[in-house]
């Protein structure tokens, strides 16, 4: 079991512990923050703030915990493509369902309220 750090065989980036520690600290603070801001009513801003904080937290995890910052670009492209498709899917589904919502019968659910 080799314990020494051999640069020639080394594949992948080694992340320093202080950096990992800094990231987890930031994640904790952001978690507290996202709960804290729900105490304030900012109308429709609330969900954007909550999601914004989640995106920052996610980015920290992806970039540092998941090594993407030092990884081959193709892996990042894979991630971004999948996220783009998620947005595409959500975007069209929201656009359409909002547009036909007025045609729906409010509260229609005969098996729930017969």
């Amino acid at each position: 079991m080799a314990t020494e750090h051999n640069h020639h065989d080394q594949v992948g980036h080694v992340v320093p512990v202080p950096l990992l520690g800094g990231v987890i600290a930031a994640l904790m603070i952001l978690t507290w923050l996202t709960v804290f801001v729900t105490k304030f009513d900012l109308g429709s801003l609330n969900i954007f703030i909550a999601l914004g904080i989640a995106v920052i937290k996610g980015a920290l995890v992806v970039l540092f915990f998941m090594h993407l910052r030092w990884d081959a670009p193709i892996n990042g492209i894979v991630l971004i493509s999948s996220l783009l498709l998620v947005f595409l899917f959500i975007g069209f589904a929201l656009m359409d369902s909002a547009a036909y919502a007025p045609d729906q019968i409010p509260g229609y659910a005969p098996r729930i309220n017969p």
């Binding site: 899917f89 069209f92 589904a93 359409d96 369902s97 036909y100 729906q104 509260g107 229609y108 659910a109 005969p110 098996r111 729930i112």
Partner: peptide, 23 residues
């Protein structure tokens, strides 16, 4: 389980299923 996402009889939206399916 009858979760009611796609079944109108449970308050769901059948057209949403078609979005899912054709995606």
């Amino acid at each position: 389980m009858g979760i009611g996402i796609f079944d109108a009889a449970l308050g769901g939206d059948p057209v949403l299923f078609q979005h899912f399916f054709w995606f």
